[in-house]
Simulated assay, not measured.
Amino acid sequence: MRHSASAFGFADDFLYSVSIVSGITCAVLAVAKFMLGRVLTSRALITDGFNSIVGSIMGFSILISAEVYKDHVDVWFLDGTLGVLIGLIIMAYGVKLLVDMVPRVRQTRNYERFE
């Protein structure tokens, strides 16, 4: 089932333009953040670069799922499924960051406490 162009033309154009601009902008920001994070040895900046990559993927996934939905209405769940997968990826990266921080926290316990 295909929708008529006149009913959804403006909404489709707006969705496509916002998704493309968002995806490209987030990808460019991710590259810049990764490069600066490596030069400055900033873990927070590298993590923010990862978040920008995820934002870029999210922008393009909206575009892809809207395009697929146009021709195949029976995959209405694609956008939500991609959102859940992106959320799981972010959660896995957060768990990785927490696990990486455990040795640092243990190391700081050996310092004298100033009271």
Rank of each mutant, 00 (worst) to 15 (best):
M1I: 01
R2T: 02
S4G: 10
A7L: 05
F8G: 06
F8I: 01
F8Q: 13
G9S: 11
F10D: 15
A11Y: 14
A11C: 03
F14Q: 11
L15D: 15
L15T: 11
Y16A: 05
S17V: 03
V18L: 07
S19I: 01
I20W: 03
V21T: 15
V21Q: 11
S22I: 00
S22Q: 06
G23T: 04
I24Y: 11
T25K: 05
C26A: 09
C26I: 01
V28D: 06
L29Y: 15
A30V: 01
V31M: 03
A32W: 05
A32V: 06
F34D: 12
M35H: 12
M35P: 08
M35Q: 15
L36M: 03
G37N: 12
R38V: 02
R38Y: 08
R38Q: 14
V39L: 13
V39A: 03
L40W: 13
R43Y: 10
R43K: 08
A44M: 03
L45G: 02
L45K: 02
T47F: 09
D48S: 14
D48Q: 12
D48C: 02
G49N: 11
N51F: 09
N51S: 11
V54Q: 07
V54A: 05
V54P: 11
S56C: 09
S56E: 07
S56H: 11
I57M: 05
M58H: 08
M58A: 14
G59C: 04
G59L: 04
F60S: 08
F60C: 04
S61R: 05
I62A: 09
I62S: 11
L63K: 12
L63A: 10
V68Y: 06
Y69Q: 15
K70R: 15
H72P: 06
H72C: 03
V73N: 14
L82D: 00
L82R: 00
L82M: 01
L82I: 00
L85R: 00
L85T: 00
L88D: 02
L88A: 01
I90K: 05
I90H: 05
M91S: 12
G94S: 07
V95C: 02
V95R: 15
K96P: 01
L97C: 06
L97M: 05
L98I: 02
L98C: 02
V99G: 01
D100W: 04
M101S: 12
M101G: 04
V102I: 10
P103H: 08
V105K: 12
N110F: 05
Y111Q: 14
F114M: 05
